[in-house]
């Protein structure tokens, strides 16, 4: 394909870059030699109706679209792109894309597959260690010069022996399980279906998993079934000493209830990388010592960006070569 493009630059395939203005266009330098890029934000500015008009005018024959980060991708955009066959997103989660509309139109969708899994798993373990061993709280304590005045810092909790319930045992959940096993944690999980090749105990409902766990780690995808799955009942089942870690999506948790449980001391703590209304975080959390807050940064390492770039390019190349996508999103 590359040779073709060199000989006939005018035949470079069209690629729509779909992004909200705050996300910069990713790996432009790698796409520009191969594709003719249509980026409404660059060409038509941040105004939404101008961007859609631009797409209608220039995207009519575009067969592929790159969705940058979790930029919402809805019917109004798809309506401007009647020839669209393939969407490649630089995310793991695809809840920002109207999947049923894509399905109806026969548009295939690819995500970044496992490219972020190691970093997300590391982030989950980092948050867990921080909440239980009070790393950030101790760092604040030292920086505030409190140590000489108040020699005894509150005790943390041991990691080993804790019962960890993993919600969503996909590639990220499996890597978290592998890591925490080395700390002596006891793993169980919940997912849509029991995994035949996995020996960890399976709970077919989240309530029972919470009842039998000291720590819940959320790393499943967000969809209608998982929206607000961590509600008042599940938090009650997790109990006063229970800890919630969320590296999935904010809306997996009923955030109002979580805040109430934390403020009232009805659960033990939380480590949160994602929130319902990012970048806005409930202010009630800012004064709590038993929470660790993180700005949706689980995947933000240069290594992950490079991996996401590689897999996105590979998916686009596969599409234009009529090969199966490298990491397709499977319809449920």
């Amino acid at each position: 394909m590359a040779e073709n493009v060199d000989e006939h630059p005018q035949r470079k395939p069209l690629l729509v870059i779909h992004r909200i203005p705050s996300f910069s266009s990713l790996f432009h330098h790698r796409l520009a030699p191969t594709f003719s890029l249509i980026d409404p934000i660059t060409s038509a500015g941040a105004d939404r109706s101008a961007a859609l008009a631009f797409l209608r005018l220039h995207g009519g024959s575009a067969r592929a679209l790159l969705c940058v980060g979790p930029s919402p991708l809805k019917k109004d955009t798809l309506d401007c792109l009647p020839s669209l066959e393939c969407i490649v997103t630089s995310c793991v989660g695809v809840d920002h894309i109207d999947l049923s509309e894509c399905h109806r139109r026969g548009i295939s969708v690819a995500n970044v597959g496992d490219a972020f899994s190691d970093d997300v798993a590391d982030c989950a373990v980092g948050l867990l260690l921080d909440v239980l061993r009070k790393v950030s709280a101790a760092d604040r304590f030292v920086r505030a010069k409190s140590w000489p005045e108040q020699p005894v810092f509150p005790l943390g909790s041991r990691i080993g022996g804790k019962r960890v319930g993993i919600v969503g045992l996909g590639s990220i959940g499996s890597l978290i399980a592998k890591r925490l096993t080395s700390f002596g944690c006891i793993i169980a999980y919940n997912s849509r279906q029991k995994k035949p090749s996995v020996s960890f105990p399976y709970y077919d409902n989240i309530h029972d998993l919470a009842l039998n766990s000291d720590i819940l780690i959320l790393c499943c995808s967000l969809n209608d079934q998982t929206h607000h799955m961590i509600n008042k009942d599940v938090l009650t089942a997790l109990g006063k000493k229970g800890v919630v870690i969320n590296v999935g999506r904010g809306s997996l948790i009923d955030e109002k209830e979580l805040v109430r449980f934390l403020v009232e001391g009805k659960i033990g703590g939380a480590g949160l990388d994602v929130f319902e209304n990012e970048p806005n975080v409930p202010k009630e959390l800012f004064g709590l010592e038993n929470v660790v807050l993180s700005p949706h940064q689980a995947v933000i390492t240069p290594d992950s960006f490079k991996a996401a770039e590689d897999i996105s390019v590979a998916n686009l190349e596969a599409f234009f070569s009529n090969m199966p996508l490298v990491s397709p999103v499977i319809w449920e």
Partner: peptide
């Protein structure tokens, strides 16, 4: 455990992120 917590805190900037 704490050694790993400090590694992740330092490399993945968990404490800085929390303050942020």
């Amino acid at each position: 455990d704490l050694a790993v917590g400090l590694i992740l805190g330092t490399l993945r900037r968990v404490c800085v992120a929390d303050a942020f």
